[in-house]
Computed example of a mutant assay.
Amino acid sequence: MDDIYSFTVKAADGGEVPLTQYRGQVLLIVNTASKCGFTPQYEGLEALHRDLQARGLIVLGFPCNQFGGQEPGDAAEIANFCKLNYDVEFPLFAKIEVNGPKASPLYEWLKTQAPGVLGSKSIKWNFTKFLIDREGRVVGRFAPTTKPEALRGEIERLL
């Protein structure tokens, strides 16, 4: 697969979401968790989404419970937590796995397109970020320690 638009993902309500609906926009894809030391990054992700959405940025959140059991809730609990604590409006999808035999096909593709440090393919922790350009190509992978606001300049160049 050459671009992200080949994928369909599961919405939080269980419906199917073809990523073609985001064609022509810059995407920031993040595996999220509600009980992680990096959870406050929801605030920065939402700020980017609100500030840059009109110019073509969409943040896509994919809850994942693979790292320390830090996303134990169901879709409703996750959405409620994000709305109450961080006023999140960017799309949150169904909980996925990002590593291992049950890893999401989207994440398998992302990891191939942008390997981590020393060529590692696995996601190391919650809040790993992938930046996708308007043509659907991965242009960057960022560690959980990279704060969303640190990506603003790179995102704005793509917009």
Rank of each mutant, 00 (worst) to 15 (best):
D3C: 07
Y5R: 10
Y5P: 04
F7I: 13
F7V: 13
F7L: 13
T8M: 09
T8E: 15
V9T: 15
K10A: 10
A12C: 03
D13N: 15
G14T: 07
G14N: 12
G15C: 00
E16K: 08
V17T: 14
V17E: 14
P18H: 14
P18M: 08
P18R: 02
Y22M: 15
R23G: 06
G24N: 10
Q25N: 11
L27C: 03
L27N: 05
L28S: 04
I29F: 11
V30A: 12
T32P: 11
A33Q: 10
S34R: 04
F38P: 01
P40W: 12
Q41T: 09
Y42H: 14
E43D: 13
E46V: 13
A47F: 06
R50L: 13
D51A: 15
D51L: 07
D51T: 07
L52S: 08
Q53F: 09
G56K: 05
L60F: 14
F62A: 08
C64Y: 00
C64A: 05
C64H: 01
N65D: 10
Q66M: 11
F67Q: 07
G68D: 13
Q70H: 01
E71Q: 06
P72E: 09
D74Y: 01
D74A: 05
D74S: 09
A76G: 02
A76N: 06
A79D: 14
N80K: 08
F81A: 08
L84H: 15
L84K: 10
L84W: 14
N85A: 13
N85L: 12
E89Q: 12
E89N: 13
P91D: 10
L92T: 15
K95V: 07
V98H: 03
K102P: 03
P105A: 02
E108M: 07
W109P: 06
A114V: 04
L118W: 01
S120C: 06
S122F: 05
F127D: 08
T128S: 08
K129G: 13
I132M: 01
D133Q: 14
D133V: 13
R134W: 12
R134Y: 12
E135K: 12
R137H: 14
R137M: 11
F142G: 02
A143D: 14
G153S: 06
L158A: 09
